[in-house]
């Protein structure tokens, strides 16, 4: 008897499930979205490679039935760059967290974007270091609490999408686990882009971030995502005061530019494809 949908059975290592994430953690929703996007695009599983660093999000590849690599903290994109350049036929996806991608791995994020290497990066942003028990991250809002910000966080947040855009990513989008279908579409479009793509998936962490900051239970945190976000297209039609303070979701960049591996291969071809 089936225990899960066809989507799950087709794309996951069934004997590895259920996953380790806490009750109400939004990460499973993003992971499902990645699987759905891959399936919609009809990729050959043997050619899909999913690479992660360290943290809650980084456990995703272990559950997914592809070529999967769970690397060191912050370095997933650097490993992925090696894999992709060595074999450009592989469809390389990096899953990362807010701390993994923008703190310890921030340098790799901006440089992968600058190169426009064909890697799709999905950042599971739960605004906290969950695996280590709730320390503040580069996306923990100013003033919020973490176990290492017991009197309120004095840091400012990174806007991951603007960071990625500024660094040269050719596809950039933000979605949330509440808006799961749109997020899935963002991931699909990111995969279709031949170049460096970043999708910031706003997740929820009821166990650490939520509890510490009195954000309520999982359904309440989901509701909060609905209430505090605005779609880019909707926001464009609203007066400024109605947009103020809202987190904008949607596609920010989707453009075509020369891709790193293709550019490099032009050099290789010069030497190896002589008649």
């Amino acid at each position: 008897m089936a225990v899960a949908s066809k989507l799950i059975e087709n794309n996951f290592r069934m004997n590895r499930l259920p996953h380790i994430w806490c009750p109400g953690c939004g990460h499973g929703i993003i992971m499902r979205g990645i699987a759905e996007a891959i399936e919609n695009l009809g990729y050959d599983k043997e050619k899909v490679c999913i690479i992660s660093g360290i943290g809650c999000s980084s456990r995703a590849p272990g559950y997914m039935d592809f070529n999967t690599l769970h690397t060191t903290h912050g370095r997933a994109l650097a490993f992925a760059t090696g894999v992709k350049l060595a074999n450009p036929d592989l469809k390389v996806i990096v899953v990362s967290g807010d701390g993994d991608a923008t703190a310890i791995g921030g340098n790799h994020l901006i440089h992968a974007a600058r190169r426009n290497i064909d890697i799709t990066t999905i950042i599971f942003n739960n605004n906290i270091y969950g695996m280590t028990g709730g320390q503040y991250s580069p996306t923990t809002p100013h003033g919020d609490l973490g176990t290492t910000a017991p009197y309120g966080n004095v840091d400012n947040v990174f806007d991951i999408c603007r960071l990625a855009e500024g660094a040269g990513a050719t596809y950039v989008a933000r979605g949330t686990v509440y808006h799961a279908k749109q997020l899935e579409k963002n991931i699909e479009n990111a995969l279709k882009n031949k170049g460096f793509s970043v999708v910031e998936g706003i997740s929820i962490c009821p166990t650490y971030y939520g509890r510490k900051n009195r954000k309520g239970n999982a359904p309440e945190m989901m509701m909060n995502l609905k209430d505090t976000t605005l779609d880019k297209k909707v926001a464009a039609k609203l007066p400024q005061e109605k947009v103020e303070g809202k987190l904008i979701i949607g596609e920010f960049v989707n453009k075509s530019q020369p891709e790193f591996c293709e550019e490099y291969h032009k050099i290789v071809d010069k030497f190896t494809k002589e008649d």
Binding site: A2, A4, S5, K6, I8, F12, L17, P18, H19, W21, G24, C25, G26, H27, G28, I29, R32, V177, Y178, A180, K181, M222
Partner: peptide, 14 residues
């Protein structure tokens, strides 16, 4: 429900 279940524990089956 299926779309937002983080644990793949509820789904529509054909």
């Amino acid at each position: 429900c299926e779309l937002r279940c983080p644990d793949f524990a509820i789904y529509l089956e054909e």
